[in-house]
């Protein structure tokens, strides 16, 4: 057992973990944060994408023991990254709803985390940047077109154009 202290969605946590536990295991099983999904457990599908010290990573590839002192943001913490009204969603979340970018929804938490991270780095990404930023998040339902549309719409809204 290893005691690990880190921050999740702005709150300090201390959890006991086994060396083989991944950050995804700990988020889901120990911390009850079930929004991050397991789709492959090999870092390929992107459904478990979270921000680790501000950077998107697949939580299934991160050993929990490694996050000592780190800050983690999950889908549950995305809304509070945007200084909107109390209880309001992040503009990326809003845009996914508005354009119908959500179908089965299983890829969506990871997809949104990747999209939010992209717009933090690049508020108006071009087509190639947008595609590359989301290439680590597979979606089997939408064909990605409406997801791109949602991210563009969110970018406009966040930039004040909408």
């Amino acid at each position: 057992m290893i005691l690990v202290s880190f921050e999740v969605n702005g709150t300090a946590v201390r959890v006991e973990v086994e060396p083989q536990d991944t950050l995804l295991d700990v988020l889901r099983q120990s911390l009850g944060l079930l929004g991050s999904k397991e789709g492959c457990a090999e870092g390929e599908c992107g459904a478990c994408t979270v921000l680790l010290d501000g950077l998107p990573v697949t939580a299934c590839l991160v050993l929990a023991a490694k996050v000592e002192g780190c800050s983690v943001t999950t889908i549950e913490g995305v809304a509070s990254m945007w200084k909107g009204e109390e209880g309001a969603l992040h503009p990326v979340q809003e845009a996914f709803i508005d354009v119908g970018a959500v179908q089965c929804g299983y890829c969506i938490p990871g997809m949104i985390v990747s999209a939010v991270s992209l717009l933090e780095r690049d508020p108006s990404p071009d087509e190639k940047t947008l595609r590359q930023a989301l290439a680590g998040n597979f979606c089997r339902c939408t064909g990605y077109n409406k997801i791109f549309e949602a991210v563009r719409r969110a970018a406009n809204r966040m930039g004040g154009d909408l």
Partner: peptide, 21 residues
């Protein structure tokens, strides 16, 4: 009109409960 899917909000916030949850 924009038709917002009733299941979308739970899915974009990570609150939708799938079997593994």
């Amino acid at each position: 009109d924009i038709v917002r899917r009733p299941d979308a909000r739970a899915k974009v916030t990570g609150k939708a409960v799938y079997a593994a949850d």
